[in-house]
Design a protein around this nucleic acid. Structure first.
Lengths: 198, 198
DNA sequence: AACCTGTACGGAGGCAGCATCCGTTTTTGC
DNA sequence: GCAAAAACGGATGCTGCCTCCGTACAGGTT
């Protein structure tokens, strides 16, 4: 059964090295200059030719997806911490904030995320990471609904969209005050009204 | 006192003609291909050189602002119709929908709008049209607040942002269902809760 | 240790769009 | 009609995208 299963040969050393360097450099450039940064510049700073970059990551989205993979997993990993709050409403709120922070860390990220989120077939490399986040969101929503804190009509996907939007707004450096009000407005929109159930 | 006041000479005929043709062509291109369309293509189709386009409208934003000017005024003109509803809450809701429609008519419009909206000094040609819309929104909000339909904490600017966001989401062709839920969610977020006042 | 094979490299090059500049054409006032 | 001013428009330089192919190198073999 060889090493792991699929590949007949183990990957060359320089391939792995280049991939790692590219990811690291891309991450830095995406953070500093947004996800629309020049890929040529990334390649140059990573010390490889453009051809190498495109061989490893055929599209900008593929590179972005690879960069986000790590961070995305970190985010989901925090689920455990958040869930231990016990309060499902609070958990949902924190989760949404965490996503928002995450999305707004890279300027221009919300656009490709949104584009990937709607697709059913993974025509974009970003679809999978997106789905993970949407599914996670849905879990929080359901938990909060079970506890009677969130309206039945709300879906995880909706709040994922909302988080995307907030991140997008933030990315256009809107002042924190308006952003906060909008955030509160959304929150009070999805919350179950106290008197309705009792 | 000459003709109108400022200019010593009346504008040349070809200038006006070119300007009009450019605006018309640009409008069509923006509608069809989004606000990020190639300006060279616009110039070409308008039958002028790139230089002429750039002389009339030094930046993409300037061209966009000029294109939107007309439509923007149409939108505000509808205020009268809407206000005659009598119901301030309904009026606000319709106004927000109208803005959303308007913004999502051109793909990619929300971005530059947002960018222009935050600025205080009109560093962007889009700032003025934006301010008009924000002011109009604020009027609706205040009217609805006076009638006790909308929470006191809400500002016109907030709902302008919300409309932008919805248009942005729509632009990434999200399905209408989620969009509708999100819209409802926002609406129920800014509405005053019925039992609070009575 | 030298070789050989196939894999990966990387830069040159073609393409598209932006924005500018300047020789030429057009318009207008006289 | 003429001359001056104003506007035209395309050639131009630049940046970034993405591909293609001759070359170099890693890794296994003898």
């Amino acid at each position: 059964m060889a090493t792991s299963g699929q590949q007949g040969r183990k990957p060359r050393a320089d391939v792995q090295r280049n991939r790692a360097t590219l990811l690291e450099t891309a991450q830095r450039h995406f953070l500093r200059h947004g996800v629309g940064t020049s890929l040529e510049a990334v390649a140059k700073e990573a010390g490889v030719g453009p051809g190498t970059l495109y061989r490893h990551f055929p599209t900008r989205e593929a590179l972005l997806a690879a960069v986000l993979q790590t961070r995305s997993e970190e985010l989901v990993a925090r689920q455990a911490d958040i869930e231990q709050l016990g309060d499902a409403a609070e958990a949902l709120e924190q989760w949404l904030r965490a996503m928002e922070e995450y999305f707004s860390a890279y300027s221009g990220l919300p656009e490709p995320l949104m584009a990937a989120a709607r697709a059913q077939e993974p025509d974009s490399p970003l679809t999978i990471p997106c789905d993970i986040l949407i599914t996670a969101t849905d879990q929080y929503v359901r938990a909060a609904q079970r506890a009677g804190h969130v309206r039945a009509s709300v879906q995880g996907y909706d709040l994922f969209l909302a988080a995307c939007s907030l991140a997008w707004i933030k990315g256009n450096d809107t002042d924190e005050e308006s952003l906060g009000r909008l955030r509160a407005l959304i929150a009070s929109g999805y919350r179950e009204r106290a008197d309705a159930t009792a």
